[in-house]
Amino acid sequence: MASIRESLLHHIQDDVIQMRRHLHQNPELSNQEAETSRFIQEKLKTYGVTFQAGFAKYGVLGIIEGKHPGKTVALRADMDALPIQELNNHDFTSKHAGIMHACGHDAHTAMLLGAGYVLQQMRESLHGTVLLVFQPAEEDSPVGGSKVMLDDGVFHEYTPDIIYGQHVWPDLPVGQIGIRDKEMMGASDRFKIILTGKGGHASMPHQTNDVMVAAGHLITSLQTIVSRSLDPLEASVVTIGTIEGGEAPNIIPNQVTLQGSIRSYAPHIRKRLKERFFTITNQVAETFEAKADITYLDGYPATINTPKWARLARTSAARVQGETPEVNPSLAGEDFSRFLEKYPGAFIWLGTQIENADEQAPLHDAHFQLDERALPLGTSMFVQVALDTLNALAKGDS
């Protein structure tokens, strides 16, 4: 069976690269993935894979039922792009102004389609079912697409016993696959603070309650949450990303708006961060006789792998490309976390670093690129982990 699998993987690898390039040239934003969804459905038809569509509007579920009875494994890829103007100059740059696949979702979709082709051709030997989950709106935090797909009943007819997701990772060179037993990615919450006070002329600050000064103190004070209110061994971050206020250099404004992000792993740390955030913000505002209007958005939970299935995925990775390196978790958010809250499984990083590592742009950057030599490996990883998991479940592992 291994030789058949390798032959199928070899047959589809050029198509995977071409599918990725097509998707890269034709990116669509969250909740607008109509053409991407149509492309996926047409490919699944070509491969003979049964599918259902319309989950979270544009989500697609491919269904590969093996000849032999068994359990069910789901493989997930996200589909959406980002509102970024691409600044690369390769032959397949985005055709859509201000929209770019800067997070590798084009590669995720192409690799899962390739894996779907291979697994469909192997269905006579499969003991169980493989689900191909094509998810829209991963970038639409804090709502996302996974919860909407679940609410829309994506798994009502076919329920996974185990689920896996895979993400391109530019910090790892091609040929390396990163998998942790527990925390992979962080919880990501967002906030907006509007500080309102009394403005006035810059020469007469005593007639105002200067919200610019209040904002400065607030930015500094919020950093004490991580440095003084939490266990220093627990990872967390409070970041102010934007500050807006004022119209002229000689006028003290009456309003300043700050927006930012809070990241963590452990639920109790996340809860404590939020409590201290509200307390400090309100108290600093009161100190400067200002008013604080707070909008706090609870975003994606932390992506926490199930240790047993993370270990199995590492075994699969070793069969694909050798031993997996030790990796540190990331505080970046990931909508796959909501699938892992419902079902056991693991999230996997696929090394895609370009040959000149010094020129590697990070995810969500207008210059982001990946080494396409990783795409056959990612396709193979999807196939291998699905087969290994079905075999483990057939032996009674759960």
Rank of each mutant, 00 (worst) to 15 (best):
K274N: 08
K274E: 14
K274A: 13
K274V: 11
K274T: 13
E275C: 04
E275H: 12
E275P: 05
R276H: 12
R276T: 02
R276C: 06
R276G: 03
R276D: 12
R276M: 07
R276E: 15
F277N: 02
F278A: 08
F278M: 09
F278N: 02
F278S: 06
F278V: 11
T279H: 14
T279W: 12
T279R: 12
T279P: 09
T279Q: 15
I280M: 05
I280W: 00
T281H: 08
T281N: 09
T281V: 10
N282E: 14
N282H: 15
Q283N: 13
Q283V: 10
Q283S: 11
Q283I: 07
Q283H: 13
Q283G: 08
Q283D: 12
V284I: 15
V284T: 11
V284A: 02
V284L: 08
A285L: 04
A285S: 07
A285W: 00
A285P: 00
E286N: 11
E286C: 09
E286L: 12
E286P: 02
T287L: 14
T287I: 13
T287R: 12
T287E: 12
T287A: 15
T287S: 13
F288E: 03
F288P: 06
F288G: 05
F288W: 14
E289I: 05
E289V: 10
E289Y: 11
A290I: 00
A290F: 01
A290W: 00
K291C: 00
K291H: 13
K291T: 09
K291L: 03
A292Q: 03
A292H: 02
A292C: 08
D293Q: 14
D293G: 03
I294E: 11
I294C: 06
I294M: 06
T295I: 15
T295K: 13
T295E: 15
T295H: 15
T295Y: 11
Y296K: 07
Y296C: 03
Y296P: 00
L297S: 10
L297E: 15
L297C: 08
D298P: 08
D298I: 15
D298H: 14
D298N: 12
G299I: 07
G299T: 08
Y300G: 08
Y300P: 05
P301M: 05
P301G: 04
P301W: 00
P301D: 03
A302H: 01
A302L: 01
A302C: 09
A302Q: 00
T303D: 10
T303V: 08
T303L: 11
T303M: 10
I304T: 02
I304C: 07
I304Y: 09
N305T: 02
N305M: 02
N305K: 01
T306G: 06
T306V: 07
T306S: 14
T306M: 06
P307E: 05
P307V: 04
P307Y: 09
P307I: 06
P307S: 10
P307M: 09
